[in-house]
Design a protein around this nucleic acid. Structure first.
Lengths: 245, 245
DNA sequence: GCAAAAGTGTTGGAAATACACCCATGT
DNA sequence: ACATGGGTGTATTTCCAACACTTTTGC
Protein backbone atom coordinates (compact mmCIF):
# COMPACT_ATOMS: atom_id res chain seq x y z
CA UNK A 1 0.00 0.00 0.00
CA UNK A 2 2.93 2.33 0.44
CA UNK A 3 3.29 4.66 -2.47
CA UNK A 4 5.90 4.11 -5.09
CA UNK A 5 4.87 7.26 -6.84
CA UNK A 6 6.55 10.22 -5.24
CA UNK A 7 4.17 12.48 -7.12
CA UNK A 8 1.43 11.40 -4.82
CA UNK A 9 3.33 12.15 -1.64
CA UNK A 10 1.59 11.25 1.63
CA UNK A 11 -1.86 10.97 0.12
CA UNK A 12 -1.33 7.26 -0.06
CA UNK A 13 1.11 6.81 2.77
CA UNK A 14 0.40 4.59 5.70
CA UNK A 15 1.21 5.58 9.24
CA UNK A 16 4.21 3.31 9.08
CA UNK A 17 5.55 4.99 5.98
CA UNK A 18 5.10 8.35 7.60
CA UNK A 19 6.74 7.24 10.81
CA UNK A 20 9.73 6.14 8.82
CA UNK A 21 9.93 9.53 7.19
CA UNK A 22 9.32 11.49 10.34
CA UNK A 23 12.01 9.61 12.16
CA UNK A 24 14.16 9.36 9.09
CA UNK A 25 16.81 11.49 7.56
CA UNK A 26 14.89 14.45 6.26
CA UNK A 27 14.55 16.11 9.58
CA UNK A 28 15.55 19.72 9.97
CA UNK A 29 17.00 21.82 12.75
CA UNK A 30 14.34 24.21 13.98
CA UNK A 31 15.06 27.35 15.93
CA UNK A 32 13.16 30.22 17.45
CA UNK A 33 14.38 33.81 17.19
CA UNK A 34 12.89 36.48 19.41
CA UNK A 35 12.54 40.10 18.46
CA UNK A 36 12.19 41.68 21.87
CA UNK A 37 10.93 45.24 21.94
CA UNK A 38 11.21 47.64 24.82
CA UNK A 39 10.39 51.31 25.31
CA UNK A 40 12.77 53.54 27.19
CA UNK A 41 13.50 57.24 27.17
CA UNK A 42 10.74 57.66 24.63
CA UNK A 43 12.47 55.46 22.13
CA UNK A 44 11.54 52.05 20.83
CA UNK A 45 14.35 49.59 21.54
CA UNK A 46 15.18 46.07 20.56
CA UNK A 47 17.27 43.62 22.54
CA UNK A 48 20.33 42.19 20.80
CA UNK A 49 23.46 40.22 21.56
CA UNK A 50 26.79 39.98 19.85
CA UNK A 51 27.14 37.11 17.47
CA UNK A 52 30.28 35.20 18.18
CA UNK A 53 30.35 33.27 14.95
CA UNK A 54 33.39 34.00 12.82
CA UNK A 55 31.19 34.64 9.81
CA UNK A 56 29.36 37.36 11.65
CA UNK A 57 32.01 38.56 14.05
CA UNK A 58 31.06 41.79 15.67
CA UNK A 59 27.57 41.81 14.22
CA UNK A 60 24.51 41.98 16.36
CA UNK A 61 21.93 39.24 16.37
CA UNK A 62 18.56 38.33 17.78
CA UNK A 63 18.12 36.01 20.72
CA UNK A 64 17.49 32.52 19.52
CA UNK A 65 18.06 28.87 20.14
CA UNK A 66 17.23 25.50 18.69
CA UNK A 67 13.88 24.00 19.57
CA UNK A 68 14.11 20.78 21.53
CA UNK A 69 12.77 17.61 19.98
CA UNK A 70 10.19 17.45 22.69
CA UNK A 71 9.49 21.09 23.12
CA UNK A 72 6.52 23.12 21.92
CA UNK A 73 7.82 26.00 19.80
CA UNK A 74 5.91 28.49 21.88
CA UNK A 75 7.50 27.08 25.02
CA UNK A 76 10.87 27.36 23.32
CA UNK A 77 10.30 31.07 22.77
CA UNK A 78 9.44 31.52 26.44
CA UNK A 79 12.46 29.52 27.46
CA UNK A 80 14.80 31.62 25.38
CA UNK A 81 13.42 34.78 26.86
CA UNK A 82 13.73 33.42 30.35
CA UNK A 83 17.22 32.03 29.91
CA UNK A 84 18.70 35.02 28.22
CA UNK A 85 17.09 37.86 30.03
CA UNK A 86 15.73 36.39 33.23
CA UNK A 87 12.34 37.70 32.17
CA UNK A 88 9.09 35.91 32.60
CA UNK A 89 5.44 36.57 32.07
CA UNK A 90 5.85 38.72 28.99
CA UNK A 91 3.83 39.32 25.88
CA UNK A 92 4.89 36.94 23.15
CA UNK A 93 3.45 36.19 19.74
CA UNK A 94 4.53 34.25 16.71
CA UNK A 95 5.10 36.32 13.61
CA UNK A 96 6.58 34.38 10.72
CA UNK A 97 8.70 31.39 9.82
CA UNK A 98 11.83 31.81 7.76
CA UNK A 99 12.82 28.77 5.78
CA UNK A 100 15.30 29.50 3.04
CA UNK A 101 17.85 26.75 2.72
CA UNK A 102 21.06 28.65 3.33
CA UNK A 103 20.02 31.20 5.88
CA UNK A 104 22.40 29.80 8.52
CA UNK A 105 26.09 29.05 8.05
CA UNK A 106 26.00 26.01 10.31
CA UNK A 107 23.60 24.15 8.04
CA UNK A 108 19.91 23.99 7.37
CA UNK A 109 18.01 25.74 10.12
CA UNK A 110 14.43 26.86 9.78
CA UNK A 111 13.52 29.53 12.28
CA UNK A 112 10.25 30.71 13.74
CA UNK A 113 10.28 34.39 14.62
CA UNK A 114 8.50 35.55 17.75
CA UNK A 115 7.83 39.10 18.77
CA UNK A 116 7.96 40.03 22.43
CA UNK A 117 7.00 43.25 24.15
CA UNK A 118 8.48 43.98 27.50
CA UNK A 119 8.40 46.72 29.98
CA UNK A 120 11.88 48.00 30.51
CA UNK A 121 11.21 49.60 33.91
CA UNK A 122 9.67 46.53 35.53
CA UNK A 123 12.03 44.06 33.95
CA UNK A 124 15.64 44.96 34.47
CA UNK A 125 17.86 42.55 32.59
CA UNK A 126 19.41 40.01 34.87
CA UNK A 127 21.82 38.43 32.43
CA UNK A 128 24.18 40.35 30.25
CA UNK A 129 26.13 37.71 28.30
CA UNK A 130 27.42 38.69 24.92
CA UNK A 131 26.78 42.35 25.50
CA UNK A 132 23.07 41.82 25.70
CA UNK A 133 21.47 45.21 25.64
CA UNK A 134 18.91 47.53 24.16
CA UNK A 135 19.39 49.19 20.79
CA UNK A 136 17.38 52.02 19.35
CA UNK A 137 15.34 50.56 16.49
CA UNK A 138 16.28 53.51 14.33
CA UNK A 139 19.92 52.52 14.41
CA UNK A 140 19.51 48.83 13.56
CA UNK A 141 21.40 47.72 10.49
CA UNK A 142 23.34 44.80 9.16
CA UNK A 143 22.37 42.24 11.73
CA UNK A 144 23.91 38.77 11.54
CA UNK A 145 22.38 35.94 9.47
CA UNK A 146 19.05 37.01 8.01
CA UNK A 147 18.20 38.72 11.27
CA UNK A 148 17.87 42.09 9.60
CA UNK A 149 15.00 40.74 7.55
CA UNK A 150 13.45 39.04 10.56
CA UNK A 151 13.73 42.23 12.57
CA UNK A 152 12.15 44.31 9.83
CA UNK A 153 9.31 41.85 9.39
CA UNK A 154 8.61 41.94 13.12
CA UNK A 155 8.85 45.70 13.28
CA UNK A 156 6.36 46.13 10.46
CA UNK A 157 4.18 43.53 12.13
CA UNK A 158 4.28 45.54 15.36
CA UNK A 159 3.42 48.77 13.57
CA UNK A 160 0.41 47.20 11.97
CA UNK A 161 -0.67 45.22 14.98
CA UNK A 162 -0.54 48.12 17.38
CA UNK A 163 -3.06 49.93 15.22
CA UNK A 164 -5.49 47.08 15.57
CA UNK A 165 -4.96 45.93 19.14
CA UNK A 166 -3.81 47.76 22.23
CA UNK A 167 -0.59 45.81 22.58
CA UNK A 168 1.36 48.90 23.43
CA UNK A 169 0.52 48.68 27.09
CA UNK A 170 2.87 45.76 27.45
CA UNK A 171 5.70 48.16 26.75
CA UNK A 172 4.70 50.71 29.38
CA UNK A 173 5.03 50.64 33.16
CA UNK A 174 1.88 49.77 35.05
CA UNK A 175 1.23 53.42 35.71
CA UNK A 176 1.61 55.84 32.86
CA UNK A 177 0.42 59.20 31.70
CA UNK A 178 -1.37 59.83 28.45
CA UNK A 179 1.72 61.63 27.29
CA UNK A 180 3.73 58.42 27.84
CA UNK A 181 1.18 56.49 25.84
CA UNK A 182 1.26 58.96 23.00
CA UNK A 183 5.05 59.02 22.99
CA UNK A 184 4.97 55.25 22.66
CA UNK A 185 2.65 55.31 19.66
CA UNK A 186 4.64 58.08 18.07
CA UNK A 187 7.87 56.18 18.55
CA UNK A 188 6.52 52.92 17.14
CA UNK A 189 4.76 54.49 14.18
CA UNK A 190 7.37 57.19 13.71
CA UNK A 191 4.76 59.92 13.40
CA UNK A 192 3.40 62.87 15.32
CA UNK A 193 -0.20 62.86 16.46
CA UNK A 194 -2.62 65.45 17.67
CA UNK A 195 -2.73 65.33 21.44
CA UNK A 196 -6.44 66.07 21.79
CA UNK A 197 -7.56 63.58 19.19
CA UNK A 198 -5.27 60.96 20.67
CA UNK A 199 -6.85 61.40 24.09
CA UNK A 200 -10.33 61.26 22.70
CA UNK A 201 -9.61 58.04 20.93
CA UNK A 202 -8.23 56.28 23.98
CA UNK A 203 -10.86 57.54 26.38
CA UNK A 204 -13.53 56.43 23.91
CA UNK A 205 -11.98 52.95 23.85
CA UNK A 206 -12.60 52.87 27.57
CA UNK A 207 -9.73 50.66 28.62
CA UNK A 208 -7.97 53.19 30.83
CA UNK A 209 -8.43 53.22 34.58
CA UNK A 210 -7.88 56.59 36.21
CA UNK A 211 -5.61 56.01 39.21
CA UNK A 212 -6.23 59.41 40.79
CA UNK A 213 -2.51 59.86 40.98
CA UNK A 214 -0.23 62.40 39.41
CA UNK A 215 3.19 62.32 37.87
CA UNK A 216 5.92 63.31 40.31
CA UNK A 217 8.97 65.51 39.84
CA UNK A 218 8.12 66.84 36.42
CA UNK A 219 9.16 70.43 35.71
CA UNK A 220 5.69 71.36 34.54
CA UNK A 221 2.08 70.66 35.35
CA UNK A 222 1.92 66.96 36.27
CA UNK A 223 -0.34 64.66 34.27
CA UNK A 224 -2.75 62.09 35.62
CA UNK A 225 -1.66 58.48 35.79
CA UNK A 226 -3.63 55.58 34.35
CA UNK A 227 -3.41 51.85 34.13
CA UNK A 228 -4.64 49.60 31.36
CA UNK A 229 -7.68 47.45 32.00
CA UNK A 230 -6.31 44.14 30.74
CA UNK A 231 -9.30 42.22 32.08
CA UNK A 232 -11.82 44.33 30.23
CA UNK A 233 -9.80 44.04 27.05
CA UNK A 234 -9.58 40.27 27.41
CA UNK A 235 -13.34 40.08 27.78
CA UNK A 236 -13.97 42.21 24.71
CA UNK A 237 -11.18 40.65 22.74
CA UNK A 238 -13.30 37.92 21.24
CA UNK A 239 -15.24 40.32 19.10
CA UNK A 240 -12.45 42.84 18.70
CA UNK A 241 -12.07 44.16 15.19
CA UNK A 242 -9.52 46.89 15.60
CA UNK A 243 -8.59 50.18 17.12
CA UNK A 244 -9.23 52.16 13.96
CA UNK A 245 -6.52 54.74 14.03
CA UNK B 1 34.87 28.73 24.69
CA UNK B 2 31.94 26.42 24.21
CA UNK B 3 29.40 26.89 26.93
CA UNK B 4 29.03 24.42 29.72
CA UNK B 5 26.07 26.34 31.02
CA UNK B 6 22.96 25.36 29.17
CA UNK B 7 21.21 28.38 30.63
CA UNK B 8 23.22 30.53 28.31
CA UNK B 9 22.32 28.63 25.18
CA UNK B 10 23.93 29.74 21.95
CA UNK B 11 25.03 33.09 23.26
CA UNK B 12 28.44 31.60 23.84
CA UNK B 13 28.41 28.85 21.27
CA UNK B 14 30.98 28.61 18.52
CA UNK B 15 30.06 27.73 14.98
CA UNK B 16 31.40 24.25 15.63
CA UNK B 17 29.17 23.77 18.62
CA UNK B 18 26.21 24.91 16.61
CA UNK B 19 27.07 22.71 13.66
CA UNK B 20 27.13 19.77 16.00
CA UNK B 21 23.70 20.66 17.25
CA UNK B 22 22.24 21.45 13.85
CA UNK B 23 23.43 18.18 12.46
CA UNK B 24 22.81 16.39 15.72
CA UNK B 25 19.91 14.60 17.19
CA UNK B 26 17.50 17.36 18.02
CA UNK B 27 16.26 17.79 14.52
CA UNK B 28 12.57 17.81 13.84
CA UNK B 29 10.37 16.71 10.97
CA UNK B 30 8.94 19.79 9.31
CA UNK B 31 5.87 19.76 7.11
CA UNK B 32 3.79 22.20 5.14
CA UNK B 33 0.01 22.08 5.13
CA UNK B 34 -1.94 23.99 2.52
CA UNK B 35 -5.37 25.43 3.05
CA UNK B 36 -6.52 25.84 -0.52
CA UNK B 37 -9.55 28.01 -1.08
CA UNK B 38 -11.69 28.11 -4.18
CA UNK B 39 -14.92 29.84 -5.11
CA UNK B 40 -17.58 27.99 -7.02
CA UNK B 41 -21.34 28.30 -7.34
CA UNK B 42 -21.15 31.33 -5.11
CA UNK B 43 -19.73 29.33 -2.26
CA UNK B 44 -16.32 29.42 -0.65
CA UNK B 45 -14.72 26.00 -0.87
CA UNK B 46 -11.67 24.32 0.55
CA UNK B 47 -9.76 21.46 -0.99
CA UNK B 48 -9.41 18.32 1.15
CA UNK B 49 -8.36 14.72 0.84
CA UNK B 50 -9.22 11.66 2.82
CA UNK B 51 -6.75 10.79 5.51
CA UNK B 52 -5.74 7.16 5.25
CA UNK B 53 -4.19 6.91 8.66
CA UNK B 54 -5.90 4.44 10.93
CA UNK B 55 -6.14 7.02 13.68
CA UNK B 56 -8.07 9.32 11.43
CA UNK B 57 -9.78 6.88 9.14
CA UNK B 58 -12.47 8.52 7.11
CA UNK B 59 -11.63 12.01 8.28
CA UNK B 60 -10.75 14.75 5.89
CA UNK B 61 -7.40 16.45 5.96
CA UNK B 62 -5.45 19.28 4.39
CA UNK B 63 -2.89 18.72 1.68
CA UNK B 64 0.53 18.49 3.20
CA UNK B 65 3.90 16.87 3.03
CA UNK B 66 7.24 16.88 4.73
CA UNK B 67 9.71 19.57 3.76
CA UNK B 68 12.87 18.25 2.17
CA UNK B 69 16.17 18.80 3.94
CA UNK B 70 17.28 20.95 1.08
CA UNK B 71 14.02 22.59 0.19
CA UNK B 72 12.83 26.10 0.93
CA UNK B 73 9.54 25.90 2.83
CA UNK B 74 7.87 28.18 0.36
CA UNK B 75 9.00 25.94 -2.48
CA UNK B 76 7.64 22.99 -0.56
CA UNK B 77 4.23 24.61 -0.45
CA UNK B 78 4.32 25.16 -4.21
CA UNK B 79 5.48 21.61 -4.77
CA UNK B 80 2.62 20.18 -2.74
CA UNK B 81 0.11 22.21 -4.66
CA UNK B 82 1.61 21.17 -7.96
CA UNK B 83 1.91 17.49 -7.07
CA UNK B 84 -1.53 17.10 -5.60
CA UNK B 85 -3.62 19.24 -7.85
CA UNK B 86 -1.56 19.79 -10.96
CA UNK B 87 -1.95 23.50 -10.32
CA UNK B 88 0.74 26.04 -10.81
CA UNK B 89 1.11 29.77 -10.63
CA UNK B 90 -1.32 30.31 -7.79
CA UNK B 91 -1.56 32.73 -4.93
CA UNK B 92 0.19 31.35 -1.87
CA UNK B 93 1.05 32.88 1.46
CA UNK B 94 2.38 31.65 4.76
CA UNK B 95 -0.02 32.01 7.66
CA UNK B 96 1.18 30.37 10.84
CA UNK B 97 3.37 27.61 12.22
CA UNK B 98 1.91 24.96 14.47
CA UNK B 99 4.38 23.39 16.83
CA UNK B 100 2.76 21.49 19.68
CA UNK B 101 4.63 18.32 20.49
CA UNK B 102 1.95 15.72 19.94
CA UNK B 103 0.01 17.15 17.04
CA UNK B 104 0.87 14.23 14.77
CA UNK B 105 0.50 10.53 15.62
CA UNK B 106 3.61 9.54 13.69
CA UNK B 107 5.88 11.55 15.92
CA UNK B 108 7.03 15.10 16.32
CA UNK B 109 6.12 17.11 13.27
CA UNK B 110 6.05 20.88 13.21
CA UNK B 111 3.95 22.22 10.37
CA UNK B 112 3.88 25.52 8.54
CA UNK B 113 0.42 26.42 7.29
CA UNK B 114 0.07 28.10 3.91
CA UNK B 115 -3.05 29.62 2.46
CA UNK B 116 -3.68 29.36 -1.24
CA UNK B 117 -6.34 30.97 -3.38
CA UNK B 118 -7.18 29.40 -6.68
CA UNK B 119 -9.58 29.97 -9.44
CA UNK B 120 -11.77 26.94 -9.81
CA UNK B 121 -12.84 27.65 -13.39
CA UNK B 122 -9.34 28.10 -14.79
CA UNK B 123 -7.77 25.32 -12.79
CA UNK B 124 -9.62 22.07 -13.10
CA UNK B 125 -8.13 19.49 -10.79
CA UNK B 126 -5.94 17.06 -12.66
CA UNK B 127 -5.30 14.58 -9.88
CA UNK B 128 -7.97 13.10 -7.73
CA UNK B 129 -6.17 10.74 -5.36
CA UNK B 130 -7.74 10.13 -2.01
CA UNK B 131 -11.00 11.70 -3.05
CA UNK B 132 -9.43 15.08 -3.48
CA UNK B 133 -12.23 17.54 -3.89
CA UNK B 134 -13.83 20.79 -2.88
CA UNK B 135 -15.82 21.15 0.32
CA UNK B 136 -18.06 24.01 1.29
CA UNK B 137 -16.31 25.86 4.12
CA UNK B 138 -19.57 26.01 6.02
CA UNK B 139 -19.64 22.26 6.34
CA UNK B 140 -16.08 21.73 7.54
CA UNK B 141 -15.80 19.95 10.85
CA UNK B 142 -13.67 17.43 12.62
CA UNK B 143 -10.75 17.37 10.27
CA UNK B 144 -7.90 14.96 10.95
CA UNK B 145 -4.92 15.84 13.17
CA UNK B 146 -5.09 19.48 14.24
CA UNK B 147 -6.24 20.41 10.76
CA UNK B 148 -9.49 21.85 12.04
CA UNK B 149 -7.53 24.43 14.00
CA UNK B 150 -5.25 25.12 11.06
CA UNK B 151 -8.21 25.52 8.75
CA UNK B 152 -9.95 27.91 11.12
CA UNK B 153 -6.84 29.99 11.57
CA UNK B 154 -6.44 30.28 7.82
CA UNK B 155 -10.08 31.07 7.28
CA UNK B 156 -9.98 33.87 9.84
CA UNK B 157 -6.76 35.06 8.26
CA UNK B 158 -8.46 35.16 4.87
CA UNK B 159 -11.45 37.07 6.21
CA UNK B 160 -9.21 39.67 7.73
CA UNK B 161 -6.78 39.84 4.88
CA UNK B 162 -9.41 40.26 2.19
CA UNK B 163 -10.59 43.39 3.93
CA UNK B 164 -7.14 44.90 3.69
CA UNK B 165 -5.92 43.70 0.31
CA UNK B 166 -7.75 42.76 -2.86
CA UNK B 167 -6.77 39.11 -2.72
CA UNK B 168 -10.19 38.00 -3.72
CA UNK B 169 -9.48 38.35 -7.42
CA UNK B 170 -7.32 35.28 -7.26
CA UNK B 171 -10.48 33.30 -6.59
CA UNK B 172 -12.41 34.66 -9.56
CA UNK B 173 -12.12 33.91 -13.25
CA UNK B 174 -10.22 36.46 -15.30
CA UNK B 175 -13.49 38.02 -16.41
CA UNK B 176 -16.13 38.62 -13.82
CA UNK B 177 -19.11 40.81 -13.14
CA UNK B 178 -19.46 43.04 -10.14
CA UNK B 179 -22.14 40.71 -8.93
CA UNK B 180 -19.62 37.87 -8.95
CA UNK B 181 -17.22 40.00 -6.97
CA UNK B 182 -19.83 40.91 -4.42
CA UNK B 183 -20.96 37.31 -4.10
CA UNK B 184 -17.36 36.40 -3.37
CA UNK B 185 -17.01 38.96 -0.61
CA UNK B 186 -20.35 38.01 0.84
CA UNK B 187 -19.39 34.34 0.85
CA UNK B 188 -16.03 34.89 2.49
CA UNK B 189 -17.25 37.33 5.10
CA UNK B 190 -20.61 35.65 5.51
CA UNK B 191 -22.50 38.93 5.28
CA UNK B 192 -24.79 40.82 2.95
CA UNK B 193 -23.70 44.13 1.50
CA UNK B 194 -25.42 46.98 -0.23
CA UNK B 195 -24.97 46.59 -3.97
CA UNK B 196 -24.59 50.29 -4.75
CA UNK B 197 -22.13 51.01 -2.00
CA UNK B 198 -20.13 47.94 -2.90
CA UNK B 199 -19.81 49.17 -6.48
CA UNK B 200 -18.80 52.63 -5.40
CA UNK B 201 -16.07 51.23 -3.19
CA UNK B 202 -14.53 49.12 -5.90
CA UNK B 203 -14.77 51.72 -8.62
CA UNK B 204 -13.18 54.23 -6.27
CA UNK B 205 -10.29 51.82 -5.70
CA UNK B 206 -9.74 52.00 -9.42
CA UNK B 207 -8.33 48.52 -9.98
CA UNK B 208 -11.06 47.29 -12.31
CA UNK B 209 -10.65 47.32 -16.06
CA UNK B 210 -13.89 47.54 -18.01
CA UNK B 211 -13.71 44.87 -20.72
CA UNK B 212 -16.64 46.22 -22.73
CA UNK B 213 -18.12 42.76 -22.66
CA UNK B 214 -21.31 41.46 -21.20
CA UNK B 215 -22.35 38.34 -19.38
CA UNK B 216 -23.86 35.72 -21.66
CA UNK B 217 -26.84 33.47 -21.16
CA UNK B 218 -28.17 35.02 -18.02
CA UNK B 219 -31.95 35.11 -17.62
CA UNK B 220 -31.93 38.83 -16.91
CA UNK B 221 -30.16 41.96 -17.97
CA UNK B 222 -26.52 41.01 -18.44
CA UNK B 223 -23.86 42.75 -16.37
CA UNK B 224 -20.63 44.19 -17.61
CA UNK B 225 -17.47 42.16 -17.28
CA UNK B 226 -14.26 43.41 -15.72
CA UNK B 227 -10.79 42.19 -15.05
CA UNK B 228 -8.53 43.06 -12.16
CA UNK B 229 -5.56 45.31 -12.82
CA UNK B 230 -2.90 43.24 -11.09
CA UNK B 231 -0.09 45.43 -12.42
CA UNK B 232 -1.56 48.62 -11.05
CA UNK B 233 -2.12 46.95 -7.70
CA UNK B 234 1.46 45.69 -7.63
CA UNK B 235 2.73 49.20 -8.27
CA UNK B 236 0.60 50.71 -5.53
CA UNK B 237 1.16 47.84 -3.18
CA UNK B 238 4.24 49.30 -1.55
CA UNK B 239 2.27 52.03 0.15
CA UNK B 240 -0.93 50.06 0.50
CA UNK B 241 -2.62 50.42 3.85
CA UNK B 242 -5.91 48.70 3.35
CA UNK B 243 -9.20 48.52 1.53
CA UNK B 244 -11.20 49.97 4.39
CA UNK B 245 -14.44 48.07 4.26
C1' DG C 1 5.90 85.85 36.24
C1' DC C 2 7.58 82.76 33.06
C1' DA C 3 8.31 78.37 30.79
C1' DA C 4 6.31 73.96 29.78
C1' DA C 5 3.17 70.78 29.23
C1' DA C 6 -1.79 69.30 30.89
C1' DG C 7 -6.35 69.54 30.00
C1' DT C 8 -10.52 70.54 27.32
C1' DG C 9 -14.68 71.41 22.77
C1' DT C 10 -16.04 72.84 18.47
C1' DT C 11 -16.36 72.89 13.73
C1' DG C 12 -15.93 71.55 8.77
C1' DG C 13 -15.11 68.07 5.52
C1' DA C 14 -14.85 63.36 4.03
C1' DA C 15 -16.46 58.95 4.00
C1' DA C 16 -19.86 55.46 4.91
C1' DT C 17 -24.60 54.28 4.99
C1' DA C 18 -29.26 54.01 3.76
C1' DC C 19 -32.32 54.15 0.37
C1' DA C 20 -35.64 54.03 -4.65
C1' DC C 21 -36.20 54.27 -9.30
C1' DC C 22 -35.43 53.18 -14.20
C1' DC C 23 -33.26 49.83 -17.61
C1' DA C 24 -32.06 45.71 -20.38
C1' DT C 25 -32.70 41.09 -21.19
C1' DG C 26 -35.05 36.32 -21.40
C1' DT C 27 -39.19 33.99 -21.07
C1' DA D 1 -46.09 41.84 -20.03
C1' DC D 2 -43.49 40.39 -16.46
C1' DA D 3 -39.75 38.66 -13.69
C1' DT D 4 -35.02 39.26 -12.67
C1' DG D 5 -31.22 41.47 -11.57
C1' DG D 6 -28.18 45.62 -13.66
C1' DG D 7 -27.15 50.19 -13.25
C1' DT D 8 -27.21 54.82 -11.11
C1' DG D 9 -27.64 59.37 -7.50
C1' DT D 10 -28.75 61.70 -3.32
C1' DA D 11 -29.69 62.82 1.50
C1' DT D 12 -28.19 61.70 6.06
C1' DT D 13 -25.16 60.39 9.40
C1' DT D 14 -20.97 59.28 11.37
C1' DC D 15 -16.29 59.70 11.93
C1' DC D 16 -11.94 62.05 11.66
C1' DA D 17 -8.82 66.06 11.40
C1' DA D 18 -7.79 70.48 12.39
C1' DC D 19 -7.43 73.80 15.52
C1' DA D 20 -6.61 77.64 20.46
C1' DC D 21 -7.09 78.86 24.89
C1' DT D 22 -6.93 78.21 29.92
C1' DT D 23 -4.74 75.72 33.89
C1' DT D 24 -1.24 73.88 36.86
C1' DT D 25 3.16 73.15 38.31
C1' DG D 26 8.44 74.07 38.91
C1' DC D 27 11.83 77.29 38.64
Amino acid sequence: MASTNTKQANAVKTLQTIQTEVQGSNRIALSVDCVIFGFDENKLKVLLIRSDLKEYLGKWSLLGDLVGGNEDIHDAAYRILKERTGLDDVYLEQVHTFGTVDRHPAGRVVTVAYCSLINVQHHKLKILDNELHWHDVKSISELAFDHQEIFETCYRWLQKRIQEHPLGFNLLPKKFSLRDLQNLYEAILDTKMDRRNFRKKFFAMDFLIDLDEMEQDVPHRPGKLYKFNFEKYARRKKKWVGIDF
